[in-house]
């Protein structure tokens, strides 16, 4: 830093050749500023992706009963992918996440939108206080949120069961059919406030004249919401939906933590849990890499499909 500033000072005294050298400095400077980011990006994004793709096309063969006669690896073609796709449990976990997403994502986005509209409507009292309360769960890590809710799901510990029985209900939050929706509840609890903030940010960007005009025309608050606010916050809704779709396919912490209290969650309950199990319980890193690539590809495909549908509707 001191050398460059010294050089710059010298350059300032000699005007004409300085400009030429200055050009050298301005071509070097951006790369110098970018260098730390690019180095770390290469190490933690590019290289792992290359490693994942390569190892998903690699087959490791162990000779001898325990591989004591040496290990050799070679090109496997699509055999790891074939193995991943032939695994009924892995395919089942993807189907489970699609079902989860089809229900949970709309519920959460609708809830976030309604809360955002209510908070931004003039009728709401103490909007700052409510906003903080709704956003608070986002600061609670997924693991901790799951531990919190798991206490409310465990029979004998949770007061919810006695409340439910007072209404004549006998819920089973951790049963084989209901545990998926118990997870959906945790995810909704965690991320509704965050999505709400993104929507509120977009609502605040609507110019005041638009509201002014609507009031002149005598539009009711409901009419303002449906014909002015909802169309104008479309970008925020698309953004939050895409993030939620990607997040749904990545679901891991919630089911993994709930395993300690629910026997209904197996080791391949979600795609990511499946890849984790393949890698660390079966030590089959190559098939796990193929699964990781498949999950990322499906997440991309779904996001683009959603974008394509929303774009077609708007045009």
């Amino acid at each position: 830093m001191t050398t460059t500033s010294l050089k710059a000072r010298r350059e300032a005294t000699a005007a004409v050749p300085a400009r030429r050298r200055r050009n050298g400095a301005t071509t070097r400077a951006p790369w110098l500023l970018l260098a730390p980011f690019l180095a770390l990006f290469l190490l933690t994004f590019i290289l792992p992706i290359i490693v994942a793709v390569i190892s998903s096309f690699t087959k490791v063969t162990r000779r001898g009963l325990f591989g004591e006669q040496g290990i050799s690896s070679g090109f496997a073609g699509f055999s790891n992918y074939a193995q991943a796709l032939a695994d009924g449990n892995f395919i089942g976990s993807i189907g489970r996440m699609l079902l989860f997403g089809v229900v949970q994502v709309p519920v959460m986005i609708v809830l976030a939108t309604v809360l955002a509209l209510l908070l931004e409507s003039a009728s709401a009292r103490w909007p700052g206080l409510f906003r903080a309360a709704f956003f608070l769960p986002y600061g609670v890590p997924g693991v901790i949120a799951t531990i919190l809710w798991s206490f409310l799901y465990v029979p004998g510990l949770s007061p919810l069961y006695s409340i439910a029985s007072a209404f004549g209900l006998s819920p089973d939050f951790l049963g084989p059919h209901s545990v998926l929706w118990s997870i959906a509840n945790i995810v909704t609890w965690s991320y509704t406030g965050y999505n709400m903030l993104i929507i509120i940010a977009q609502l605040k960007a609507i110019p005041g004249e638009v509201y002014e005009a609507a009031r002149m025309d005598g539009a009711s608050p409901v009419r303002v919401a449906s014909s002015i606010q909802l169309p104008l916050i479309r970008p925020a809704l698309v953004l939050t939906t895409i993030f939620s779709i990607i997040g749904t396919l990545q679901l891991f912490a919630e089911p993994q933590v709930l395993q300690s209290v629910s026997s209904s969650i197996d080791s391949q309950y979600t795609p990511n849990l499946s890849a984790y199990t393949t890698a660390f319980a079966y030590n089959d890193y190559n098939v796990a890499a193929a699964q990781a690539v498949l999950i990322a590809v499906i997440a991309f495909a779904l996001s683009f499909a959603f974008l394509a549908i929303t774009n077609r509707k708007s045009s």
Binding site: W126, A133, F134, I206, Y211
Partner: peptide, 28 residues
């Protein structure tokens, strides 16, 4: 400017909206 309907806000709507927000707060 973004909270323009203030003058038009009726007391009953305020109670209704705030009530809904309180219920949501309970959940969170």
């Amino acid at each position: 400017a973004t909270r323009p309907a203030a003058a038009g806000g009726k007391k009953s709507t305020t109670i209704l909206v705030t009530g809904a927000l309180v219920v949501a707060t309970l959940y969170f």
